[in-house]
Write a protein that binds this DNA or RNA. Structure first.
Lengths: 219, 219
DNA sequence: GAATTTACATATTACAAATTTCGTCATTTG
DNA sequence: CAAATGACGAAATTTGTAATATGTAAATTC
């Protein structure tokens, strides 16, 4: 082969596609465009990807993998599980939101894929779910949380945070103050599974949040 | 007028539109069809509704008003606030889900309206939000809940339940066991704002849920 | 003979003409 | 004169066709 390795050409195609996708969007970006940019025939592209959507899928999966890796590092931090849970949800939200703002065409591609093939990112979603579950188990282990069913609680957290994480919903909450709302959401759920402070009074002043810490008030 | 009152004809138009919408969907259902069915000129229909979408809007609003009324009766039941909150969320979910199953074309119309004009049902959403808030305040009043910020907590509940209530999301969770998940979701949030039982032990057996009651396990 | 290209059949998309619907209004009807 | 209609331009939809893209397989190059 004239080019580098098999793998090398794949990467070149993905890089080219990424740029074209950003500029033209999924409909106007054609396999011909990719081939033209790389000075090869479009047929050759099909040696590396069976279909056009396989290329788009690869780009999305690459992005999701990055986020997943980042989330794993957050989950590994040496801070209380409650803090890690909060950070994970907030960062997942921020990354998606930022993508929508920075690269609308890519986001639209992602949104459509999930809409048409909801199971596309199932593996990735499972990974995130496991992060939730593991963090809840870590919290229980550390005496930070009550001995809830970690699977059940992780499901609740997943469902509850959907409005801030699901690609179909993020565009609808774009204009709003999602940071505070997402933080409150996690804190309420975490408060529900948290151990009570040893000697806290049952009555608190109005407006205070439940659980271990003072919740930040919406602005 | 040959027909009944002004109001009577409006109702006839809406009834005709409801049937045609169910059968043809929003695109294939035309104002001409409605007129044909009622044996009047299509121009006459425009004496009662300024545009086609005004007819569709009226149908949707009628449906939302029904749900709202039902929710108000639930909120007025003579049971603990926690039970009422749970019932309200579950019934809102069931009604929407059922509509999607019974009358897909109507649901699609609704979904599109919310997608294109997110503020369309703002008034109705506010009503539901107020039901949440009022129930939380009732719970606080009754010593059932902690003295949380009712506005904040209602917002959390609204956001958290979006996956089961928002028209864009319901189709995505149709195949899944949403009843149990929705119930768990509400129970976790409610548990978080609930008073602790007076003399409960801090350690519970694994798998038990937080809060006042035993949470039903997912099947 | 592996890598790449040209050639080709199939599927999509794009475009322009014809048809239908939307929404308004002057006119007719009872 | 209240109620309804037919007629009309604008807008949207449908139809038929040309152009382009997708995906495959035979032919060519190195």
């Amino acid at each position: 082969m004239q080019n580098g390795s098999q793998n090398e050409t794949q990467k070149l195609i993905l890089e080219a596609a990424k740029g074209l996708l950003r500029r033209y969007g999924p409909d106007k970006m054609t396999v011909m465009d990719i081939a033209r940019l790389l000075k090869m025939s479009h047929a050759n592209v099909y040696r590396f990807f069976r279909t056009k959507s396989e290329i788009l899928d690869a780009l999305i999966d690459e992005w999701l993998a990055q986020i997943e890796a980042f989330v794993e590092t957050i989950a590994g931090r040496e801070v209380p599980a409650s803090e890690r849970l909060e950070a994970v949800v907030l960062e997942l939200h921020r990354k998606r939101r930022q993508k929508l703002l920075d690269d609308a065409e890519f986001y639209e591609t992602y949104r459509r894929v999930i809409e048409l093939r909801p199971d596309f990112a199932e593996k990735r979603r499972e990974k995130i779910f496991n992060v939730f579950r593991k963090l809840i188990e870590a919290g229980i282990e550390a005496g930070e949380f009550k001995a809830v069913d970690s699977n059940e609680a992780a499901n609740v957290l997943k469902d509850a945070s959907a409005i801030f994480l699901h690609p179909l919903m993020i565009p609808t909450v774009l204009k709003e103050d999602t940071e505070t709302r997402a933080r409150n959401l996690v804190r309420y759920i975490v408060a529900g599974i948290s151990m009570e402070p040893p000697k806290a009074a049952t009555k608190r002043r109005a407006g205070s949040a439940p659980g271990r810490r003072q919740l930040q008030k919406a602005v």
